Simulated assay, not measured.
Amino acid sequence: MKECFDFLLEIDQLKKVIRRTYISDGSRHENTAEHSWHVAMMAMPLWERYEHKEEVDLFKSIKMLLLHDIVEIDAGDTYAFDEEGYKDKIQREKLAADRLYGLLPKGIKDDYRKTWEEYEEAQSPEATFAHIIDHIQPLMLNIATSGVSWKEHGIRSQQVLKRNEWIQELSPSIYRQIQAWVDTGKDNGWLKP
C-alpha cells in the first residue's frame, strides 16, 4: 500500500508543470494536472458522438488520458510546435516513465506502463481516440482565449491543420470543428495565414 501512496503523492507534482495553453478565461497558463482532468472529462461527451465509439473502450481511453502526461513531472511539457523539444522528447519521457511508474507495486506498475506505451504508440482505437481529445483541447482553449497562446508563439493556420490532418479520416465531425476553429483564428488574426 505504501508504494501506491508514494506514487499518488509524487504525481501531485503534476500541478507544478506549466503548459503553454491558457485556461479558458485567459488569466493564467494551465498546469498539466488540470489538462489531464480536462481531457478525461472531454472524452466522455465526445465519445458519445464519436464515429467509431463502438470500437472504443471509453474507460481505457480515460485511463490513458489520466496516465499519459504523468511523465511530464520529470520530462517537462513539450509544446506541440516545438521542433527542438521533440528531438529528445521520447528519450526524456521513457526515463520519466521508468522512474514514476516504477514507484508502484509490480502488477500496477506493469499495467500503467503498458497503458502509457499503448497511448504513445497511438495504434489502438482507445489510443487514437485519446490522441484526438488531447489534440483538440488546446485548440478549444485557444479559441476561448482569443488565440493568446497562438499569438505568443506566432503559430500559422497551416501548422495547426497539418498537426491535426490525421483526424479528418477518423472523425469528420471533429475535424470540421477543428477547421472552424482555425478559420476563426485566421479571421480574427490570432493565427498567421
Rank of each mutant, 00 (worst) to 15 (best):
P125A: 05
G85E: 03
Y50Q: 01
T115C: 10
K60M: 08
F7W: 09
V160R: 05
W181H: 10
L141H: 13
M140E: 14
A80T: 12
W181Q: 08
F5W: 12
N188P: 04
D77Y: 14
G154T: 05
G154I: 07
N188S: 11
A33N: 05
W47Y: 08
T115D: 05
A127G: 00
K63R: 12
A96K: 05
D25E: 04
S149Q: 12
Y175K: 04
L161W: 04
I62V: 15
L139F: 04
S146P: 01
D69G: 07
K186D: 06
L65N: 04
A40E: 09
H135V: 09
S36V: 06
L104M: 00
K16W: 14
E152Y: 08
T115H: 02
I167Y: 02
A97L: 07
S157R: 03
E83G: 03
E34N: 04
S157F: 05
M140W: 15
A75H: 06
S149A: 14
A180L: 11
K2A: 11
G154W: 15
W37I: 14
G147T: 08
D187G: 15
D111K: 15
I155A: 06
K15L: 11
E30A: 14
G107T: 06
V148A: 08
S27Q: 06
R163Q: 14
I90D: 15
H135Y: 14
V148R: 14
P193Q: 13
R92I: 06
M42Q: 05
H68S: 01
L46P: 04
M44I: 13
D110N: 11
E152T: 07
I178M: 05
K151Y: 03
W166A: 00
A40R: 07
I132E: 07
E51P: 01
Q159A: 12
Q168R: 12
K60F: 05
A127H: 00
H135T: 11
K114F: 06
H52D: 03
K2T: 11
L161M: 13
W116G: 00
S173M: 09
L191T: 01
I90N: 12
M1Y: 08
I70K: 04
F81E: 09
Y101D: 01
E30Y: 08
Q91R: 13
K60G: 00
S157D: 12
A180F: 14
D88Q: 13
L66T: 09
K162F: 09
W37A: 10
E165C: 09
F129C: 03
E10R: 14
V71L: 10
K63V: 03
N164V: 06
N164S: 11
T128R: 13
K63F: 01
A96W: 01
T128G: 01
K114N: 10
D111N: 03
E165G: 00
Q159I: 03
L8I: 13
D111S: 09
S171P: 04
L161D: 05
W181A: 15
R156T: 11
Q177C: 14
R92W: 00
A43H: 02
L104I: 06
D187T: 13
L46C: 02
K87V: 13
S61L: 06
K16M: 12
A130P: 04
P125E: 03
V39W: 03
K2P: 08
G102R: 02
